Simulated scan of single mutants.
Amino acid sequence: MAVSEGLPIGALAGRTGLAVSAIRYYEAQGLLKPWRNAGGQRRYQRADIRRLSFIMIAQQFGLSLPDIREVLASLPNNRTPTPKDWARIGAALRGHLDARIDTLLRLRDNLDGCIGCGCLSLPKCKLYNRDDIAQSKGTGPRYLLGDRPDV
């Protein structure tokens, strides 16, 4: 296969370890932009291997697909990040990663007092609901439902 023909989706899946359905999902989410050959089949750039690798790494960092889409949209011509881009992106993500690490450390340090609770709205909860402040936001596990703690 000539490079100019692009990669079929099966080859891209084989190179990245992703299922074809995952690649199609990422495409539907606007993270990949294949083209169609004369026969109507999807074709991908070789750079999409790196792009998909970036997506998988960013997800491991805890970024959502909309966040990843925003990062990738900041790159010109739909290309993958260069080392210079990655340094800029990494600097921007550092705060996100530090906050995630802090949350995980708090979870680890307070886990024994929370096992079995499940509701995260009891007055004794040390993780998310000190002094039962969540009750002012409504009933149920407010922070699990998407409310943010007032910090």
Rank of each mutant, 00 (worst) to 15 (best):
G6V: 09
P8N: 13
I9D: 00
A11T: 12
A11W: 05
L12H: 03
G14E: 03
R15L: 14
L18Y: 09
V20A: 10
V20L: 07
V20C: 04
Y25I: 09
Y26G: 03
E27I: 06
A28S: 15
K33D: 14
R36F: 06
A38Y: 08
Q41Y: 15
Q41M: 11
Y44H: 04
Y44D: 00
Q45K: 11
A47L: 07
R51Y: 00
L52K: 01
L52F: 02
S53Q: 14
F54M: 01
I55L: 02
A58N: 05
Q59S: 04
Q59C: 01
Q59F: 02
Q60D: 08
S64R: 04
S64T: 12
D67L: 06
D67H: 08
I68P: 00
R69I: 03
P76A: 00
N78D: 09
P83V: 03
D85W: 09
W86F: 14
A87R: 15
G90P: 12
G90E: 13
A91H: 15
L93W: 05
L97I: 15
L97S: 12
A99R: 15
A99K: 14
L104F: 14
L105T: 15
L107H: 03
R108D: 11
D109H: 03
D109A: 08
C114A: 12
C119Q: 07
C119G: 11
L120I: 09
S121T: 15
S121G: 14
L122A: 08
K124I: 10
K124M: 08
C125Y: 02
K126T: 10
Y128R: 05
N129C: 02
D132E: 13
D132V: 05
D132R: 10
D132K: 12
A134G: 06
T139G: 05
P141G: 00
R142K: 05
R148T: 08
D150Q: 12
V151A: 13
V151R: 14
